[in-house]
Design a protein around this nucleic acid. Sequence first.
RNA 1: GGCGGCGUAGCCAAGUGGCUAAGGCGGAGGUCUGCAAAACCUCUACUCCGCGGUUCGAAUCCGCGCGCCGCCUCCA
Length: 466
Amino acid sequence: MIRIYNTMTRTKEEFVPLAAPHVGMYVCGVTVYDQSHVGHARSAMVFDVIRRYLTFKGYQVTFVKNYTDVDDRIIKRASQEGVTAREFAERFIAAERADMASLGVLAPDVDPKATEHVPQMIELISRLVASGHAYPIDGDVYFEIRRFPSYGRLSGKNLDELLAGARVEVDERKRDPRDFALWKGAKPGEPAWDSPWGSGRPGWHIECSAMAMQYLGESFDLHGGGEDLIFPHHECEIAQAEACTGRPFARYWAHNGMVNMGKDKMSKSLGNTLNIREVVKRHDPDALRLWVLGTHYRNMIEWSEERVEESARALDRFARLRRDATAVRGGAAAASLPPAFAEFRPRFARAMDDDFNTPQALAALFDFVRALAEARDRGPAVIAPGGGFVAGVDELVQLARVLGLFGRDAAAEGPPAEVERLVVARGEARARRDFKRSDELRDEIARLGWLVEDTSAGPRLTPKGS
RNA sequence: GGCGGCGUAGCCAAGUGGCUAAGGCGGAGGUCUGCAAAACCUCUACUCCGCGGUUCGAAUCCGCGCGCCGCCUCCA
């Protein structure tokens, strides 16, 4: 049984899908007007892991993550560059896809764009106007929050306090300052679509209600996003959708914590972002992922180059095991998992079942690593092809993959012939105890990117940086 | 001002009423090695921001205080 912390109720609840084994999952993607940063990376990895774990548990997950590709900033920046909003947005959609792939984040089943769902949004808005939840003024359409009594429930806000929030510019035409735009009348030169209220474009929140319902139905299981989206974005999504259908929208709401730069949240508006593209140049994506998963997804995490490097070191212990397993794998039929290694899968699952407690799941994996290394050092019987060691490593890797680790196949390609030649030469030097020559050769091999280590079974070659 | 969250070893971070307070990184010692590297073994919080309280029993619940963060505006 999986328990998920539901932002709506502020408690951990048993996860019961509407129509098991199917699970409909929607996560708010990015507004594509800039490069994706580490904060986006965290959110993406967190929900990637949730999706993978649900799949691991046997659910058939339909995972939808949108692109919001029409928005004030997109329009503004596109016009500054003299390109169309569409061209501008497409560029960053492509960049985002590349970033996600580089992080080992699985592609969504559907990744709809707002601009391709305007008719659905217009349909929604029309129904809201018809039912009296929304009202048009001068080509704009606003949602009237007083007509939706539970507005504020998700974010725990009460409407009176919201009114005091004078940081919002008051638009005199609105019936209530807290009402939000569903549709914005077109200004000259802006992308626009025809609608019953004249030419215009959708407001910020409506696209997610429309696309979620389009692909997952009026009610679906899990809705995710960064905790900074709880208000107003998700609050508004709920209002629009539920006012329209009269049915509950998402059943569970999951929100990831922010990434901070020093004490401040990393955000585009503060200008303290670190782009994924930059980070991936310096760090192994798996190290980044291990760093992210080392903290529970709902807690804040502070960016730290050093901590990512630490994660990379921890990863070496997995990598060594995998290479050792590859080395002894042989053609023998895989042995079944020895009882000594059987405890880790249940431990892993127990941790993940409890609101996706990845730090605890990782602790189980590291204990597994220790148990495997110990067995390996204990002797040939375990390591022999068909012995339990290989089966254990396979099990470990399987579990790690549920966290999205080791997605790339690291079945190391052999070293180049030149390196092989040097290793042989070094072995000869060592045999005649010419250690000076031997060390020179090791340095030479290192310059070619390989690490030689002497073991009882002979020299072991490892590509550097893997 | 309102709402929400956090404060656990040198650093990071689980645990949220009761066996010896996970795990990672770092550090110390040991085994192995020509030297290394890697790996393995042992050790590294009598204590969980402070002060009160509830309880047979609290890091875990309650109150107050201190420090920090997020949301209330675009934001993952």
